[in-house]
Amino acid sequence: MSNQKQMATALLAGIVFGFGLSVAQMIDPAKVVNFLDVFGTWDPSLAFVMGGGLLVNAIATPWIFKRGKPIVADLFHLPTKKTIDKRIVFGGVLFGIGWGLAGYCPGPMLTSLSFFNADILTIVFAYLVGTWVTKQVLARM
């Protein structure tokens, strides 16, 4: 399948994703931290973001897989690991601490590059460094 077609469709999906994150106001870290602040000034909105996302995706997913193959690629790439190990918990906890400290998970962080200010460039750079170094270390284990 043509690489150009896959790049065009990925661009489209990325635009819808980034626009959706913005509409949901996940690009506002103060709102994200307020969602996480159940015992203080709680803003439950982000539970509705996950609810809306899950609803649409959970309805679409069985229908998509029933087609047998994707439209501009040869096969569905799905995670192969099924085991619940220490890594999934340990990694999740580290990610959760970082998310709670600054209010940015990866999607909103990258979408916020559209603000192009020093704060967002700083956290995105640190995120990329953390990802790259960890991939190097895991590849050698």
């Binding site: 896959q6 469709t9 990925a10 489209l12 999906a13 990325g14 819808v16 994703f17 626009f19 959706g20 994150l21 913005s22 509409v23 949901a24 106001q25 996940m26 909105s45 982000l46 539970a47 509705f48 973001v49 996950m50 609810g51 809306g52 996302g53 899950l54 609803l55 649409v56 995706n57 959970a58 679409a60 997913t61 998509i64 087609r67 994707p70 439209i71 501009v72 690629a73 569905f76 999607g107």
Partner: peptide
């Protein structure tokens, strides 16, 4: 939040359906 979440779910479905 619900509309934004729905768009995120739609984007995820598009990437699986297309790519």
């Amino acid at each position: 939040a619900f509309i934004g979440g729905g768009l995120i779910g739609l984007a995820a479905a598009l990437l699986m359906l297309l790519n």
